[in-house]
Each structure stands twice: as structure tokens, then as C-alpha cells.
């Protein structure tokens, strides 16, 4: 375990110093701060629009960071040959993969946490500090964190056998598909005209691809006052889902990476 933690903490230390990530993060933080200034919007929807915008900034930034961070993780180690100095020590390959992943997720968590702090600060500055509102607000980033944990695992899995550029598009594609497909699936299911084969196929795809939409819980945050049924149960299930998915992907990554010649 200490080996994994060592690799993870080194990875974290490296990740939070990567300039490209810091630039992305800075742009996001800047956008979060100026977002409330965009008052060209219709007055009634302003609160909703700004919440939507800030949530969107956090989500997209997190996704971008998750992908950019993870796709280079293993290829960089190989290119810089640091991986040899690690793998020739008593470090199993699975420990290396898990350590790298945990480091990435820790870095992501830190960055999301940081953005959330800024979000709370900016919101409080604009409409006063309201603990109840803050509690609502943080639910968005909290769920994004799990969303990004899955996305990172997806990118990690791909990074064991494709190049970073291909991985970037693959992972982005899966992120979009995993977000959109849920709706497509719903419309297939609700449409009586859909034939059984299509429905079965859609169910199968839905079953397999990661459902990123599960972590988009911003709607009630953007438009407060909706009744939420079994919220705790929902969070429990979706976090459980994320953990299972991540473990599954990591095991696949390990299985591939174990055979991989670096």
C-alpha cells in the first residue's frame, strides 16, 4: 500500500505543477469570478443562468483536466524512462497503475475543490452567504468529482494501449457518448415505434458504457425548489456505481498493462 501511496503522492505533486493544467484551472477560476458580471441576460433567469454557467465551467474544466492529465500519465513515464527506474524496483505493475490513477484522482479532487471554494466565494459575494444554498451548490461539484473519477479511469485504461492523442479523442468521445446516450436510450424506450431489436441494443449499450449523465445533478441546483426523492439513496448508488466502474476499468488497465512492453 505504501508503494501505491508513494507513487500516488508523487503523481499528485507532479500533476498540480503541470503548467497546462494550471493554465486551464486559472482560466476556469477567472471565468467563475467574472461569470456573475454577465448581466446582459434576462433578469429572471439570471440566477439560473449564472449557476448553470458556473456549474458548466466547473464540469467542463474538470473533464478537460481529467483527460489531459490522465492521457499523458503513463506515456510520459515511458517517454522520460522514469517508469524503468520504478518498475525495476520491487513495484508491481498493478501498483504502478493504481498509484498513478489515485494520484490523478487526488489532483482532480484538489482542483475541483479549489473551484468549488471559488464558486462559493463568488456566489456569497453576489447574493450573500447562505449555508443552505452552499450545501445545495456543493452537490454539483461533488458529483462531478465522481464523474471525473470514471472519466479518468477510462482515459487511464486507454492510455495503456493507445497514444495520448488518440486517447484524448477516445476519452472525450466516450464522455460525450456516456452523457448523451442516456437521453437517446430514454427516447428509444419511451417511443412506442421503436422495434424490439433496437430497444435491446440500446439497453445493452446503456448497460455497458459509463453513464456520465448520472452525475449531472445540477438541474435542481440551477432551478431550486424541486422535490427530490430519496436523495441519499441516489448519491449512495451513483457513488457505488462510480467505484465499481473505476475498479472494473482499472483491472482491465492492469490486465493490459501487465502484458504491455514498455
Amino acid at each position: 500500500m505504501s508503494v501505491i501511496l508513494s507513487i500516488a503522492s508523487t503523481t499528485l505533486g507532479e500533476a498540480i505543477r503541470r503548467r497546462v493544467l494550471l493554465v486551464i484551472l486559472l482560466i476556469a477560476l477567472g471565468s467563475l469570478i467574472i461569470a456573475p458580471g454577465l448581466s446582459v441576460l434576462q433578469p429572471r433567469g439570471q440566477q439560473a443562468a449564472i449557476t448553470s454557467l458556473t456549474m458548466g465551467i466547473i464540469q467542463m474544466t474538470s473533464a478537460l483536466i481529467a483527460i489531459v492529465l490522465t492521457v499523458y500519465m503513463i506515456p510520459n513515464e515511458i517517454e522520460r524512462r522514469t517508469i524503468y527506474t520504478i518498475l525495476c524496483k520491487p513495484v508491481q505493475r498493478w501498483q504502478f497503475v493504481v498509484g498513478k490513477y489515485l494520484g490523478a484522482v487526488a489532483a482532480l479532487g484538489m482542483m475541483i475543490f479549489f473551484m468549488t471554494l471559488v464558486l462559493i466565494f463568488v456566489t456569497s459575494l453576489n447574493s450573500g452567504f447562505d449555508i443552505a444554498r452552499v450545501q445545495e451548490l456543493v452537490k454539483g461539484p461533488f458529483m462531478y468529482f465522481w464523474q471525473m473519477a470514471i472519466l479518468s479511469a477510462v482515459a487511464m485504461m486507454f492510455s495503456t494501449f493507445v497514444t495520448p492523442l488518440v486517447n484524448f479523442f477516445l476519452s472525450s468521445g466516450i464522455f460525450i457518448a456516456g452523457t448523451v446516450f442516456s437521453s437517446v436510450f430514454q427516447s428509444f424506450m419511451e417511443n412506442r415505434g421503436t422495434n424490439e431489436l433496437t430497444k435491446t441494443l440500446a439497453s445493452a449499450v446503456q448497460y455497458i458504457i459509463p453513464n456520465f449523465a448520472l452525475y449531472n445533478v445540477q438541474n435542481p441546483i440551477i432551478n431550486p425548489g424541486q422535490e427530490i426523492v430519496n436523495e441519499f439513496g441516489y448519491y449512495l448508488q451513483s457513488v457505488g456505481y462510480a467505484l465499481l466502474y473505476v475498479v472494473g476499468l482499472l483491472v482491465v488497465a492492469i490486465l493490459i498493462f501487465d502484458r504491455r512492453e514498455v
Binding site: L53, M55, I57, M60
Partner: peptide
């Protein structure tokens, strides 16, 4: 679906 629906609206 890319997020920020309300903002885009």
C-alpha cells in the same frame, strides 16, 4: 448536453 444549458439558452 455539453453543459451550461441555461447559459446557452
Amino acid at each position: 448536453f455539453a453543459g451550461m444549458r441555461e447559459m446557452i439558452a
